[in-house]
């Protein structure tokens, strides 16, 4: 998973339009496995065109491997378009749900304060825990996670990055 604190390699975001039909995701993930590509996240969802899905992949790899990855993806017949987004000219977001252990009032208050600073939403408060929704770049989510890790994270779910290049 993402390790924002050790930023050894830069984050790359690959955006592609793929055929929206059965078996496509299998072909793509099988390519990663067979060619030993390391992937941080993949998201797939529908687009404005019913027969196309957008797939967004994030990865931290060397540039030479990135180049191979993109070329191999481009070779897949079910991939209609693929490009590496320029981070400086891209809007990208990830959503994380984090259930944090909060045994007493003080803990809970602290967590809620942190959440406010990060413009995160409190989705649920139970006797033992608080569940927070954070939306932002993976770095922001990492920063939030690093902050509240002292309270013990019970569970966490991250969506992976969705991205679009900025408008003209």
């Amino acid at each position: 998973m993402s390790s924002g604190e050790f930023k050894i390699k830069p984050l790359y975001i690959i955006s592609s339009l793929v055929e929206n039909k059965p078996g496509v995701l299998f072909r793509i993930t099988n390519l990663f496995r067979a060619r030993n590509f390391n992937i941080e996240s993949i998201t797939v969802g529908t687009t404005e065109k019913p027969d196309l899905s957008r797939m967004t992949i994030t990865t931290r790899i060397d540039e030479a491997i990135l180049d191979q990855l993109v070329k191999q993806l481009r070779k897949l017949i079910d991939i209609v378009e693929v490009e590496v987004l320029d981070i400086n000219n891209t809007v990208y977001r990830e959503l994380a749900l984090i259930k944090i252990r909060a045994k007493d009032f003080t803990n809970r208050n602290e967590i809620i304060n942190f959440a406010n600073v990060f413009r995160a939403n409190i989705l649920d408060i139970g006797k033992e825990s608080v569940t927070v929704e954070v939306i932002g770049t993976p770095d922001k989510i990492d920063a939030f996670k690093n902050l509240i890790i002292q309270y013990d994270i019970v569970e966490m779910a991250r969506t992976g990055v969705s991205a679009l290049s900025r408008g003209e």
Binding site: Q68, K71, Q72, K75
Partner: peptide
């Protein structure tokens, strides 16, 4: 003919 072959094993 295959762009993926360019630079795969040899730059």
């Amino acid at each position: 003919i295959d762009p993926a072959e360019i630079g795969k094993n040899k730059s």
